[in-house]
Simulated assay, not measured.
Amino acid sequence: MELVRRDESDTVVICVHPGGMPTRSYMQLATQMTDYSWHLVELSLNRRYASAVGKSDLPSTILSEIADEVIEELGELWESKRICLLGWSFGGVLASEMARRRHDASCGVILLDSIAPRLFDDVMDGTQPDRLVRLSRTQVVTVRWFTDYMRVLKQVDWEIEGSDAHNLSEEALIELMCSRLIEKGGLPASTSTVGFSKVYREFAKGMNRNIAIILAHQPETVDYPLHLIRSEYPLYEIFHIHEDMGWGKLATDLSVSSVPFGHYDMLLSQPSLDHISVQIEKMSRRLT
């Protein structure tokens, strides 16, 4: 979708968003950065991306197939003279794959807290990718990420004990989370457990899909400009085992900065948006 189209602009910013969090921050950036034409790819509407939900044995070509579909949908916009791809979370992984198709210095990527494909290859032992898949599907990790997500989305201070996530069945845990959010004012008192369980399970399925796609992909080294903006409060510490979140193994032209916010609120804080805008300005000056 078009956020703010400015035909006189030399640089097009394409925001690649995997869904979940509100997209209003991109409009805020578009409003304050008037020298650019702004467009948004909402991945939740992408057919190939949607088809990967619930699957764990994905082909190694899956990320490339999603990138090809997005580029086809962008049409003539993809032929713009200069493109800055801005990808949050999994959107950054897809943006990095899309940029490979430009084959020149006219496209750069800004990653917002994105984990590099195959982060752990040659970093720890060879079984680490399988361990990461199993880890991502544990109730403990899902609940931790979901807690952070709802804290930011609903602007409510709430927590679920790790022991509860370890010991309760999924049904009992969903009931506990629902009642806790209602108690803290994050949900209306009329919220049903059934409705809330759909939200939680959709979140878990989306999280597992993104990790499965990343781990199935066989990345190649890239030489286009790439800048990573890390959150200082990661979803899970293991993803920040390296300052560059694994991108240093793939990108020959990489720079890194950070913002003092978490994975989810880095898109909703004005100081963070200001930092992102500075990096977009720097990236645009490098594009030829």
Rank of each mutant, 00 (worst) to 15 (best):
M1A: 13
M1C: 09
L3F: 01
R6D: 10
R6I: 07
D7S: 14
D7M: 08
D10R: 12
V13A: 11
I14G: 02
H17G: 00
P18G: 07
G20F: 08
T23F: 04
T23E: 10
R24H: 14
S25F: 14
L29S: 04
T31S: 12
Q32V: 11
Y36T: 00
W38M: 01
V41H: 05
L43V: 07
L43P: 01
L43K: 04
L45Q: 15
L45D: 14
R47T: 15
Y49L: 06
S51C: 08
L58I: 05
L58F: 05
L63G: 00
S64N: 12
E65K: 11
D68K: 10
D68H: 08
V70W: 02
I71L: 13
E73V: 07
G75M: 06
E76M: 11
S80N: 09
S80D: 08
S80K: 05
L86T: 00
G87E: 08
F90S: 03
F90A: 03
F90K: 03
F90E: 01
A95V: 04
S96I: 02
E97K: 04
E97M: 00
R101Q: 15
D104W: 08
S106L: 03
S114T: 13
I115Q: 10
P117H: 02
R118Q: 15
R118E: 08
D121K: 11
D121L: 09
D122A: 12
D122K: 12
V123C: 10
V123Q: 12
D125Q: 01
T127I: 08
Q128S: 14
P129A: 10
R131W: 12
L132V: 15
L132Y: 07
R134A: 14
L135Q: 11
S136T: 13
S136H: 11
Q139A: 08
Q139V: 04
V141C: 10
V143A: 12
R144P: 03
Y149N: 03
M150E: 14
M150K: 12
V152G: 02
L153F: 09
E159Y: 12
G162F: 03
D164W: 07
H166Q: 14
N167I: 07
E171D: 13
E171H: 05
A172D: 15
L173M: 04
M177W: 02
P188R: 06
A189I: 10
S190W: 06
S190C: 09
S192I: 04
S192A: 09
K198L: 14
Y200R: 13
F203G: 01
M207R: 11
N210Q: 15
N210M: 13
I214H: 02
A216D: 02
Q218R: 15
P219W: 04
P219I: 00
D223V: 07
L226V: 13
H227G: 02
L228C: 05
E237W: 06
E237F: 05
F239C: 07
E243K: 11
D244W: 09
L250Q: 10
A251F: 05
T252G: 15
S258I: 05
P260E: 05
G262E: 03
G262V: 02
H263Q: 08
H263F: 03
Y264T: 01
Y264C: 08
L267S: 07
L267A: 08
S269E: 15
Q270S: 13
Q270K: 14
H275F: 09
I276E: 07
Q279A: 10
Q279H: 14
R285V: 05
